[in-house]
């Protein structure tokens, strides 16, 4: 469970986050959307414990985030960061296994968990390749597998689909939905409104460091609201096969 109470953060004079209140329930996928510079990634790093807010309280699993040690925090939340490289030539299997390095789970389950995660993000066939030689998308899938093996109740994804092709965008978000069905609280920053609409239970629309709207995809992604926040005319129509809206620019 994630609960944010009145979070504010400034850098110099600029307000990055402005009194954000949000709560995400276990078993749900929440998509965080909004234009560039709206504060999505900043909010995610506050929840991840990377950045301490100037004001307000972050509560993960009923406990204030300040009360966790770095190692405790790694037991309850996994983070898919924006842009991840690796500095030495570790192979993919080693990178994925790093997700378990300081996880207090029985080590005899590690091998099976790593194998399953690599299968799910379709990197198993390149398990022994040097992770430095991967393409951007392959790297992102390796990182996603690493997030999966951490098996945390709170999963934070910062643009997990940015580098991925169509198939893997769907696969990664389906995995995120599976995690939620298994009881995890999933929060994902997404740029593609249609991916958000198709997979998220709830969408949080941010604008200028504050939450502009929250609700189901149909409630948030209205022509008027998207047009106003993104300053771009759009039309919204039902997806021909899925029961979700589709946003098209016009």
């Amino acid at each position: 469970m994630i609960e944010l109470r009145n979070i504010s953060l400034r850098a110099d004079e600029k307000i990055l986050l402005d009194r954000v209140n949000l709560s995400c329930e276990p078993g749900t996928v929440t998509a965080l959307v909004g234009p560039n510079g709206a504060g999505k990634s900043t909010l995610l790093s506050v929840i991840a414990g990377d950045v301490r807010p100037d004001q307000g309280e972050v509560v993960l699993q009923d406990r204030n985030i300040g009360k966790f040690s770095v190692r405790d925090l790694a037991q309850i939340r996994a983070v898919f960061p924006q842009g991840s490289g690796i500095r030495f030539g570790y192979h993919v299997h080693e990178v994925v296994s790093m997700g378990r390095a300081f996880r207090d789970l029985p080590t005899n389950q590690d091998a099976a968990a790593i194998e399953a995660a690599m299968m799910q993000s379709e990197v198993a066939h390149m398990a022994w390749r040097n992770a430095q030689t991967l393409s951007g998308g392959e790297q992102a899938r390796t990182t996603f597998a690493r997030v999966l093996v951490q098996e945390c109740p709170v999963v934070l994804l910062d643009e997990p689909t940015a580098a991925l092709d169509l198939r893997h965008q769907e696969k990664v978000l389906e995995s995120a939905v599976d995690l939620a069905r298994g009881g995890a609280t999933v929060l994902a920053v997404l740029h593609d409104l249609n991916l958000a609409a198709a997979h998220a239970d709830r969408i949080v629309l941010m604008c200028n460091g504050a939450i502009a709207a929250t609700g189901t995809p149909w409630e948030v992604l209205t022509q008027e609201q998207v047009g106003r926040v993104y300053r771009q005319d759009v039309c919204v129509m039902p997806h021909p096969l899925r029961e979700c809206p589709v946003v098209l620019t016009c």
Binding site: D50, V70, L73, A74, R77, P81, F88, G99, F102
Partner: peptide, 13 residues
């Protein structure tokens, strides 16, 4: 090797 931020996410102080 993953960088300071990700090392922290995985439990390294």
């Amino acid at each position: 090797a993953l960088g300071e931020r990700q090392a922290r996410h995985l439990g390294v102080d």
